[in-house]
């Protein structure tokens, strides 16, 4: 029994040491583990000329298609609510790209403040709902997809309730 206890204590001690080492390492490298920076982060420090990923929502009413120069391009602003960054991109956008959608753009910031993207990824949020629920939320005015993520799930009503229930007075 004592040998077992010794092994048990040894393993628990090793686990504790390893756990704290990992926690310290992860805290130290936290800045390198983020996949993208927010517009606020970008405004705080000078990243001009360095390739990085910028993440945020596509600001409502800022998407402009620029097809004048021959190849299809797009110009929009990425926002996190407190800061926004103008982005230009030439290429194919993901299907989920729209105003209000979370996106991650890879590219560099030019000296004039414009972010020149070489890749645009759409970020899917944790919400999954059928088209009917989305339509009902939009129709009742509780959600504008252009303005940001949908309201909390507990406030959704199933479409059946929308049809049969009394409209809220």
């Amino acid at each position: 029994m004592t040998r077992k206890h010794k092994r048990l204590v040894l393993i628990l001690a090793c686990g504790l040491g390893l756990g704290s080492a990992a926690a310290l390492t992860l805290t130290a490298f936290s800045d390198n583990l983020v996949y993208f920076v927010s517009p606020t982060d970008l405004a705080k420090s000078d990243h001009t000329g360095r390739q990085l990923r910028l993440g945020g929502l596509v600001e409502q009413g800022t998407v402009e298609r620029t097809s004048a120069t021959g190849s299809a391009g797009v110009r929009f602003k990425v926002t996190d609510g407190s800061a926004d960054v103008p982005v230009v991109y030439k290429g194919i956008l993901p299907d989920l790209f729209r105003e209000g959608q979370g996106v991650i753009v890879l590219g560099t910031r030019e000296p004039d403040g414009v972010f020149r993207a070489s890749e645009v990824l759409a970020k899917h949020d944790e919400t999954y709902m059928p088209k009917e629920v989305a339509d009902a939320l939009k129709k009742s005015g509780r959600w504008n997809p252009g303005a940001g993520p949908p309201p909390p799930a507990s406030t959704w009503n199933e479409p059946v309730k929308q049809v049969t229930g009394q409209p809220p007075g």
Partner: peptide, 20 residues
């Protein structure tokens, strides 16, 4: 903990799931 492209959990111990 970090900004990721992968979405956060839809089902948690606290709060309603964000899946219909």
């Amino acid at each position: 903990w970090w900004n990721t492209l992968h979405q956060p959990a839809s089902i948690g111990l606290t709060g309603a799931p964000t899946i219909a």
